[in-house]
Design a protein around this nucleic acid. Structure first.
Length: 128
RNA sequence: GCAGUCGGUUGUUCUGUCGCUGUCCCGAACUUGCUUCGGGAGAGAGGAAAGUCCGGACAACACAGAGCAUUACACUUCCUAACGGGAAGACACUCGUGAGGGUAUAGUAACGAAGAAGAAAAUAACCGUCCCGAACUUGUUUCGGGAUAAGGGUGAGAAGGUGAGGUAAGAGCUCACCGGUGCCGAGGGUGACUUUGGCAGCCGUUCGUCUUGUAAGUUGUAAUCUCGUGUAUAUCGGCGUUUGAGAGCUGCUCGCACAAUGCCGAGGGGUUGAGAGCUAAAGUUGCAAUGUGAAUUGUAACGAAGAUAAAUGACAGAACCCCGAAUUUGCUUCGGGGACAGAAUCCGGCUUACAGACCGACUGCUUUU
RNA sequence: GGCCCCGUAGUUCAACGGACAGAACAGCAGUUUCCUAAACUGUAGAUACAGGUUCGAUUCCUGUCGGGGUCA
């Protein structure tokens, strides 16, 4: 399981509406300048996977092209940096469910997203 | 050469690394399943995919039948599965020096409306002009009765226009020319219509109602069907009992048709998943023929996204194009940029957004020959 | 994704196609009061944007933009 370091497959995403609302109600919020992160952690679940979802509000970006681009860039940044979290999870068997929300109104560069994702993941890891 | 009009085509390319979603093949694991994991091959957004403005396909429900209402469209001939779309024309108005662009065009038999302004908005006498009578203040006077659409501050629109005759003053009252309408004929055109000859009458504008013709049942792929989970009381059928007039069917009417409750049987609300629907289609491209053209016919090749918290990407480098600067005038160097925009059942249109590049036809101005 | 609805003062609503676009509350100024409130008087402020039809458009038509609802 999870031998491929940089993969990002379908079951690593959160799909059900119930889970998302549960995370928003009970989750812990972390912030950087442009992105905020909501997450829940759980021990000893059956599925040993970290799951994420990405959200870009339609009110701030009207064009679907721009919204999709930001989503893809966030996913890409997570894909390349998820070893930060997986190393920790494997040791302690704590699994996370995360939602990334893009807050800013301006279109970001890939580099800022990349560095902010790393920052968020490290923050989250250090709290446990 | 510069500026423009119309129509059409196109909508950056390549390499490397790491990924995503289907399809097919191979291997491994076991719970033998369209299961999971690993590897390989090959495929993966647009001209508008957008807006959801029209028209269909497809699906479910409704529908004995008739009438009315409502909505949309409305010159002609065609194209099309269909359309409120398109093509080629006709005619009028309008914008432009021009190539061209925009808008309108069924019928007028009947009825209604036109604020403010103006005498008057259609059976036009307020002022004015002219005639007759009376009065006394004898006047470019006043009063009364008539004739008259030539003139008049308005208005989007004022009773065909110009000239001459005519008259008390005037008037299509008469005549000439011109505009428009109707009827009868001749030539051209498939047709709208047009050219032309004669006759008639003397002819307002806009909008609405109305009339005529054509079309429209309703809802939409979250339709609809199947499976799993699951078990309230909608609905339907049968039998029994009770009651008698307002609940339903397409917006209304005629018409059709029946309600309440008990038992039995079928069935299934809500929640949350999976599969089908789902992509081969009024298909795309090339060539040929027919046609002014939209398009049609024949023939050959291709087989080409199918996601569902949303795949089709990210990063780096190079090429190509554009802009700016530098100057060794070499497409040399440096810097910046490459639009609008992302399938969600599928087609045909329309509308809107768009950096540029290319092709064809034509117009105006300028220069040269 | 499909199908609907709505955009009028700061807010909540009006307005046959006819012109100064109306009302209430809120705002500002004044009167009254020792001061405030209440009351009274006055005043400013708007048709989402762009075209078209019309003599004339908030109203009718078309297209953009914005906001909202609904479905299994």
């Amino acid at each position: 399981m999870k031998k491929q370091k940089y993969s990002f497959s379908k079951n690593e995403r959160i799909k059900s509406n119930k889970e998302i609302s549960r995370i928003f109600n009970n989750g812990i919020f972390l912030f950087t300048k442009n992105i905020s992160l909501v997450y829940l952690c759980s021990k000893d679940t059956d599925q040993k996977i970290n799951q994420i979802a990405v959200s870009v509000p339609k009110k701030k970006f009207k064009s679907a092209v721009k919204r999709n681009k930001i989503k893809r860039q966030i996913k890409e940044a997570y894909r390349l940096n998820k070893s930060i979290i997986y190393d920790y999870s494997d040791k302690n068997s704590i699994w996370f469910k995360m939602i990334f929300i893009y807050k800013s109104k301006s279109i970001p560069t890939y580099k800022t997203i990349y560095s902010e994702i790393i920052e968020l993941l490290k923050k989250m890891r250090d709290r446990h």
